[in-house]
Design a protein around this nucleic acid. Structure first.
Lengths: 231, 231
DNA sequence: CGCGGCTTTGATGTTCATCAAGTAAAGTGG
DNA sequence: CCACTTTACTTGATGAACATCAAAGCCGCG
């Protein structure tokens, strides 16, 4: 595979997540069953229906979690995950096979920890298990709330929320390179590509943002937020 | 409060869920911090924003989990939960306040277990914690998948799926009393009441089901399933 | 170079929300 | 128990929001 590389990551940021909860020996045990790999933009990390063998952790880069549509042009993106996010947390404990696919939308360093060792440690270290529990719950809550709010919004609000998401949650800047295509935005917010493009054109005309290809500058954050809330 | 009653439930079905995982003394400890209460149809069990103090478990009856809309006539029902379901599992570990409301749609016996004791046991008994983890994950997966499939369906498919849900998942019969109003069906599937009614009328006209008020008999399960899948 | 996928705009049609209005059912107070 | 009010249910008519279809320009890639 191109651009692939195996990395032993003893000081992976993963450990930070459970600071004070894991013992030295537990961290060691995890490290021994952990490996990292670079995925370049566009590469598929997990395919729907792959057996669940590892806990997956994003160290750097950006990935999308999605389900494959039955017909073509019908994928649905569940979430865009950033570093420190536990991607694919959901199906890991409830299914023996992945129910979502994951692929890199930017070059990404992905860590894999054998699920077996996670289970072993969780069984012995209840605090670790509880910490996991909180993360899973939080993630689920977010996804669900997200979906419910999405359903309540019209086209403009949906598209606005995506630009706010990238600006605030991902890049923390008003100026950034859009890491997804118009088509992918459509898959994120349950719209058709054409309509996403139309709305973007409107936003540009209304001077809410500057956008040229993938280069974005947000000009009127307040108005976008208003549109995202109401529309 | 009317129809309320406090019950010490030593042999609550809750214990069955963790059969072989909990020790005698742990079961005892849980029992001591557990209480049950009857809620009659329509009563509110949990209000959005109530502090999370207990793990909540449905022993008998039927409840709905929903979020209160900002405007009136804008509630959204997340799920209908049946006995053996851990209602309100989601927000319990991730939030200090409930983010969903829960109310009884049939007379229901609800068990409350102090969250503190659950946490204590989970910390010491990792298997118990893992078991919880699996339940949370499963629940989340179901909710999310549900929402995604919903968004893909048209009116007829959405309404059909609700009748299938009650017939197959809840009552396990082709003949049952609908426990929800047309308005609540609308809140379940992101439609307007008028449209739910229109679709139901069509189904009746097409002889897919007999329905009079709340009495339902499903006549053509196959066709309803087809509509639910495709439409 | 030419092919396929992404982007863009316009025209058209379908799906669904909204508005209106009336009937039935269910809860409320005298 | 009956008049009264409210809430649930139902159907029709209209319009808004969005999908679909079509066509053309753009871009990257083998």
């Amino acid at each position: 595979m191109p651009n692939s590389e195996t990395i032993q990551c003893k000081e992976c940021i993963f450990n930070q997540l459970f600071d004070g909860i894991l013992s030295k020996s537990e961290i060691m045990a995890l490290s021994e069953h952990k490996s990292g790999r670079m995925f370049s933009k566009g590469e598929i990390i997990i395919q729907e229906n792959d057996p669940v063998t590892h806990f997956i952790y994003l160290n750097s880069g950006l990935v999308k979690v999605y389900i494959n549509g039955k017909k073509k042009n019908n994928d649905r993106i569940i979430s865009i995950s950033k570093p420190m996010d536990c991607i694919g947390l959901m199906s890991i404990f409830s299914n023996s096979n992945h129910i979502y696919s994951i692929s890199a939308i930017e070059d990404s360093l992905v860590c894999f920890i054998e699920l077996k060792i996670i289970r072993e440690i969780a069984e012995k270290n209840g605090k670790f298990a509880l910490c996991f529990l909180e993360k899973v719950s939080q993630l689920s809550d977010n996804f669900l709330i997200n979906r419910i709010e999405l359903a309540a919004k019209h086209m403009r609000g949906r598209v606005a929320s995506i630009f706010l998401f990238f600006s605030k949650t991902i890049y923390n800047q008003t100026e950034f390179e859009l890491p997804v295509s118009r088509k992918e935005i459509a898959e994120l917010v349950e719209l058709r590509t054409e309509n996403v493009i139309r709305v973007i054109s409107e936003f540009r005309k209304d001077n809410l943002l500057y956008i040229n290809g993938k280069s974005v500058v947000i000009n009127n954050m307040e108005e976008l937020e208003k549109i995202s809330r109401i529309g």
